[in-house]
Computed example of a mutant assay.
Amino acid sequence: MPRQPVYEQVIDDVIRSIQSGALQPGDKLPSIAELGEQYRASATPIRLALRILDERGWIEVHQGKGSFVAPEPPA
Rank of each mutant, 00 (worst) to 15 (best):
R47L: 15
T44H: 11
P30Y: 05
Q63K: 14
S31M: 02
R40P: 13
P25C: 08
Q4P: 11
P25V: 07
P73Y: 06
S42G: 12
E72Q: 12
M1N: 11
P30K: 01
G66C: 01
A43E: 07
R56V: 07
I52N: 12
P45L: 06
E60C: 04
P45V: 10
Q4W: 13
A22M: 06
A22V: 13
L29S: 05
S17T: 08
V6P: 00
P2M: 13
K65Q: 13
D12T: 08
A49E: 00
Q9N: 07
S31W: 06
I32Y: 02
P74M: 00
D27W: 07
D27P: 04
Y39A: 02
V14Q: 02
D13T: 08
L53E: 03
A75C: 06
E8Q: 14
G57R: 03
L50C: 06
G36T: 02
A22Q: 10
R3G: 15
D54Q: 13
Q4C: 14
V61N: 12
P25D: 08
R56Y: 12
E34P: 05
E37M: 11
A22T: 13
V14P: 03
S67D: 03
K65A: 08
A41W: 00
R16N: 15
E8H: 10
H62D: 12
E8I: 10
R51H: 14
P25I: 04
I11F: 08
I32N: 01
P5K: 04
M1G: 15
